[in-house]
Every structure is written in structure tokens, then in C-alpha cells.
């Protein structure tokens, strides 16, 4: 089992996400994280899905997703074939604000993006391991809430969806 990023370029139609995830569900492959956004091409949507599975399985999944009428093209990558980031938000009670916290924030290259009367929100971008490490530390600062996005990823190989659309 390995971690893979499945990257799909699709039309932006109702139900497309449903159709895509059904292919994972049917094969009993759990989706670790998922993001959807627009892409560089007008009207082309991209879905990025992180899974832990075997290479055989991920190849099958990619081929099956390509059979979906509104999927333009699917790819899969190992972690070293993509540049990816995740964003994490941490909600900390105002009472925890002290020099110790400030040090942690600096150390992790995190930043405070919002300060309210009762809490502050810290943001950090990075890989899961890093945002998780910060989470562990912030538990000592009575963290109130934590949320992390799925990965957004761009591929290192140079082929583009544009080339595919134009040929």
C-alpha cells in the first residue's frame, strides 16, 4: 500500500463528484482527502483525491474514472511526483496566548490570521506530517478546533491537460 494522488480534469456538471467517488467506493478504497476547484482552462474543473492503496488498484481506478463521460482525463501520482500542499486552521482560546505560543508559531512558520474577542485562528500550510505535529503541540494550548484541507497538487511531469484537449 502506498499513498497516491489521483488528479482528475472534468467538466463541471452536476453529479460529477458523485460519479467519481462511486468508483472508489465500489472497490472499497477509502478517500483520505479530496479537493475540487477550477483549473487553468476555462470550464475545466479539477478534482484531487488522496488515497492509500496498491498501484494495481489505483491504475484500475484511474481507468474507470476515465470512462465517466464528463471526465476529460485522469492521472495518478506517487508523492514524489507531485508538489502538493495542505492548509490547516487551529482555533486557540485567547487565554492561551503567551510567549510560548508565539515561539511555536514562529518555529512552524504558522501565522495568526484572525483575532477575536475569545480566540485566535492560526493558519499553517504544509504537508500532513507538519500540520499534525503543530496540532500535537497546540493541544497543550487548549486548542478548541482544528480543520485541515485535502491536498491541492500540481504534477511534476510536464504533460498538460491543454495538450490533451487540443489533440
Amino acid at each position: 500500500m502506498n499513498r497516491y494522488t489521483v488528479s482528475l480534469f472534468t467538466e463541471n456538471f452536476i453529479g460529477i463528484l458523485n460519479r467519481v467517488t462511486l468508483i472508489f467506493t465500489r472497490r472499497g478504497v477509502n478517500i483520505d482527502a479530496l479537493t475540487a476547484s477550477e483549473s487553468k482552462e476555462d470550464g475545466v474543473h479539477r478534482i484531487t483525491i488522496e488515497v492509500t492503496t496498491t498501484e494495481e488498484q489505483v491504475i484500475q481506478i484511474v481507468k474507470q474514472t476515465e470512462k465517466i463521460i464528463d471526465v476529460i482525463k485522469s492521472f495518478y501520482y506517487k508523492d514524489d511526483e507531485v508538489v502538493y500542499q495542505e492548509i490547516a486552521l487551529y482555533k486557540i482560546p485567547i487565554s492561551s496566548l503567551d510567549p510560548g505560543l508565539e515561539k511555536v508559531i514562529r518555529q512552524y512558520n504558522a501565522r495568526i490570521i484572525s483575532a477575536e474577542k475569545e480566540f485566535v485562528v492560526i493558519e499553517m500550510t504544509g504537508h500532513k506530517e507538519d500540520t499534525k505535529a503543530l496540532l500535537e503541540i497546540l493541544k497543550d494550548f487548549n486548542i478548541l478546533e482544528f480543520a485541515r484541507s485535502g491536498r491541492v497538487a500540481v504534477a511534476k511531469p510536464m504533460g498538460t491537460i491543454e495538450q490533451y484537449l487540443n489533440n
Partner: peptide, 14 residues
């Protein structure tokens, strides 16, 4: 029915 038939059709639409 679009939901019901989604995994079973080549394509469907409402």
C-alpha cells in the same frame, strides 16, 4: 432515479 442509476448507467441526466 438519477442517484439510483448513477453507478449503473453509462451516463444519466435530469
Amino acid at each position: 432515479v438519477v442517484g439510483f442509476s448513477m453507478p449503473g448507467t453509462k451516463w444519466n441526466i435530469q
